[in-house]
Nucleic acid binder design. Structure first.
Length: 726
DNA sequence: CAGTCGACTATTTTT
DNA sequence: TAGTCGACTG
């Protein structure tokens, strides 16, 4: 198929260059709103119009949603469907296709975070590591980070440097044995096993290298080491590799992403063409300036200046609310006003970003009260709800009985009188004979120290499982789920208690059946199967199914905001300890990531940006005085407009319970008695000396030279949390 | 073995 | 605050 497309009308010269770049490596550094998605889609369309087979293009995006979106747009341009995927879904497909060549059986399953954590806990128990001493979460994270860097358990064991490392090494090793036995892979395994396969089996690698003559990787700044290695392996042969990224938008370092990959790309592909896209088409000049200004506070950053031809637009609106309820009310009122004034065409034009999900609750309550239609993205994902995990566990067990985690999940759900202690007996037996938990159940009759009554109950359970297994051979996912519900009486048992959550649970189960039906209808190869469905849901998230056609305001975390844009953006909870989050405050590098996160949020806005904070907020059930985020003070004052809640007085009347500070240092009076020369101490910057004071009272601006900082810093007295130092 | 109670503690962010 | 975890009792 050859159809010349003239992109010149819709692209600027730099974009055109990126789109029509021929062969060889290409690095596109695409600033926020510079038309990145358009370039990627046009490039794919361009390649196809040049005669490249769609199936020869490997496009990798960050989320399934982005993949779908891009596929849709490509299809519109050239009416060809290009297989776009995420790293994880691509690897899963490869591993399934090549299952004969990996140390797994064909029917392996994918473990999500919860399964992974259960398994880690299990391993810890076997190694006699107390959960109090070290958190399971810490171990699972450490294991994930190791896998991101392609470090195997034996390699990890060789490089231990501390006592903690040693524990991790032990758990890691135990975990690897267990997960392999369970015939399961976690998210990180998908990448790592795929790399391993390619490195060990050159013929297989060659096959995929041959197949994909062009590669595109989106959100390159958020790829981890393993993903980059995978990319390099695949691109080695043709070297037609195009990566797109923006270092300023790297927000997944905590998950192993390496911004360095962008720099390494130029090193690894010396002949790479580098194209910088710096014109922003999305935001008003004011918003863009403000965002640029904030992110320019990052030290570890390559200088880059986005610009735009767009109008200045309204100033960035800063609002200080009395407390979190006041904040939510304010946002709701603003949205109403915008809507009434017809400043927005639809509620879909509005989004609310917060740093952590916990903040969504207040807004949810307020919006419900205000009858403002809204959709909350994320939080407890659909597939991690208990009832869904329970039912899905049955599917998983039927497909892969070796999956101990899920066998143990369902063995007593619904209750069958097979509690903790008999499970423990079985688990011990299984381990002694080195068989799976399932096999132990199957041989229950032979297991000593098990009451006859138990053996009978286990027998009944096994009869049920075998019946299900047999039925599964010839059933579609929907039919099978219904069968499970019938046979186990799950709904009656778990949802018949009159609990308020029961109705939602039943709804969720119905939703699961719908999802299965949806899968069956769209299954590409007409071979809808239970394990196919399992793989489908393993990598799906709520964001993917987010339907932006419903008329409603969207609420989501800033992390979910990547790649999206909205005419009206509210960023809420901009307070120290929250955004930047307190876990990041120790390490300047982490704070820089928070700042990039803030930058990503701000640059989603097209027309209006409002950033709010509260004077008081209830955190951990305790009312606390809050300090506005440093990111707010980093905004250029010329581009913003500050408003303070009318309710402020009524709040400040109530004396905040001033928590006693440790140590003998006294509070610097916040009634304006600052003077140059005073030695002070700041919670983050440490000791310093006031160089000069401008203004007085709370609003006084203090220029302070901190010992920890190279130059003096200007702080507003009220928010500086200063203490006197001797 | 299961249900209830109280204590406790944890909160980023996600494919 | 709320959700989880563990101990205790029926």
């Amino acid at each position: 198929m050859k159809a010349v497309i003239d992109f010149r009308a819709q692209l600027n010269p730099v974009q055109l260059e990126a789109v029509t770049h021929g062969t060889g490596p290409l690095l596109i550094v695409a600033g926020a709103g510079s038309g990145k998605t358009r370039i990627l889609t046009c490039r794919v369309a361009h390649l196809i119009s040049q005669g490249v087979q769609p199936s020869a293009i490997l496009g990798v995006t960050f989320t399934n949603k982005a993949a779908d979106e891009m596929a849709r747009r490509v299809e519109k341009l050239v009416s060809a469907s290009v297989p776009l995927s995420t790293f994880h879904s691509f690897c899963l497909r490869v591993l399934r296709a090549e299952s004969d060549h990996i140390p797994y059986q064909r029917n392996f399953v994918v473990y999500d975070k919860t399964d992974q954590l259960t398994l880690v806990k299990d391993c810890m128990r076997r190694l006699n590591i107390s959960e109090k001493h070290a958190k399971p979460r810490a171990f699972s994270n450490a294991i994930s980070r190791a896998k991101d860097r392609l470090i195997t358990a034996p390699q990890f064991a060789k490089s231990v440097k501390s006592y903690m490392d040693e524990s991790v090494a032990n758990v890691y090793s135990e975990y690897e044995t267990a997960i392999l036995k369970a015939n399961a892979m976690d998210f990180d395994d998908l990448i790592m096993r795929c790399v391993e396969l390619f490195q060990k089996q050159h013929d297989i690698l060659a096959k995929y290298q041959q197949r994909f003559s062009y590669m595109l990787v989106d959100e390159f700044q958020d790829t981890n080491h393993a993903q980059y290695v995978l990319t390099k392996l695949l691109a080695q042969k043709h070297r037609n590799i195009c990566v797109v990224g923006d270092p300023d938008q790297s927000i997944y370092r905590f998950r192993g992403a390496e911004i360095r990959n962008i720099l390494d790309f130029e090193r690894d592909f010396k002949d790479a063409r580098v194209i910088l896209l710096e014109q922003n088409y999305r935001s008003t000049a004011t918003i863009l300036e403000a965002a640029n200004h904030v992110v320019s506070h990052n030290v570890e950053r390559k200088e880059k200046k986005l610009w735009t031809k767009n109008d200045a637009g309204a100033p960035v609106s800063i609002f200080r609310a009395a407390d979190e309820n006041d904040e939510a009310r304010f946002v709701a009122r603003c949205i109403r006003e915008l809507s009434d004034e017809q400043a927005i065409a639809s509620l879909n034009d509005v989004v609310i970003f917060y740093r952590i999900h916990a903040l969504s609750r207040v807004f949810e309550e307020e919006f419900r009260r205000a009858r403002l239609p809204h959709a909350i993205i994320g939080d407890v994902g659909f597939y991690s709800r208990r009832e869904i995990k329970d039912i899905v566990a049955y599917l998983r067990v039927v497909v892969n009985p070796a999956d101990d985690v899920n066998v143990r999940r369902i063995v007593n759900v619904p209750h069958r009188g097979l509690g903790e202690s008999s499970q423990e007996v079985l688990a011990r037996y299984a381990r002694a004979c080195s068989i799976s938990f399932y096999d132990a159940l199957d041989q229950a009759a032979k297991v000593p120290r098990l009451a006859a009554g138990m053996k009978r109950k286990i027998g009944q359970f096994m009869t049920l499982l075998k019946k299900l297994q047999k039925a599964a051979q010839s059933m579609l996912p929907t039919e099978f789920i219904r069968l499970v519900l019938d046979e186990t009486h799950y709904i009656e048992e778990m949802c018949g208690s009159g609990d308020t959550q029961d109705r939602a649970r039943v709804e969720n189960i119905k939703e699961l059946i719908s999802a299965a039906a949806e899968y069956e209808n769209t299954c590409p190869d007409e071979r809808a199967s239970i394990d196919g469905f399992l793989h489908e849901i393993a990598l799906s998230s709520e964001l993917d199914s987010w339907n932006d056609s419903a008329e409603s305001v969207t609420l989501m975390t800033v992390h979910n905001a990547k790649g999206l844009e909205f005419p009206v953006v509210f960023m809420v909870g901009l307070e120290e300890d929250l955004f930047p989050h307190f876990n990041s405050l120790e390490d300047p590098t982490d704070v820089e990531e928070e700042r990039r996160l803030c930058y990503v949020g701000m640059t989603r806005a097209q027309k209006r940006l409002t950033m709010t904070s509260a004077y008081h907020r209830t955190v951990f059930g305790q009312r606390k005085v809050r300090e506005p985020s440093r990111f707010l003070t980093e905004l250029p004052s010329t581009h913003s407009e500050v408003r303070i809640s009318d309710h402020r007085d009524s709040i400040t009347d109530a004396p905040p319970p001033e928590q006693p500070r440790r140590g003998s240092a006294t509070h610097v009076p916040d009634n304006g008695e600052y003077q140059a020369g005073l030695r002070v101490k700041h919670p983050h910057f440490g000791p310093g000396v006031i160089e000069s004071v401008q203004g007085s009272g709370d609003e006084a601006r203090l220029t302070i030279k901190f010992e920890s900082l190279p130059g003096p810093k200007v702080l507003v007295a009220k928010y500086a949390k200063l203490r006197a130092a001797r």
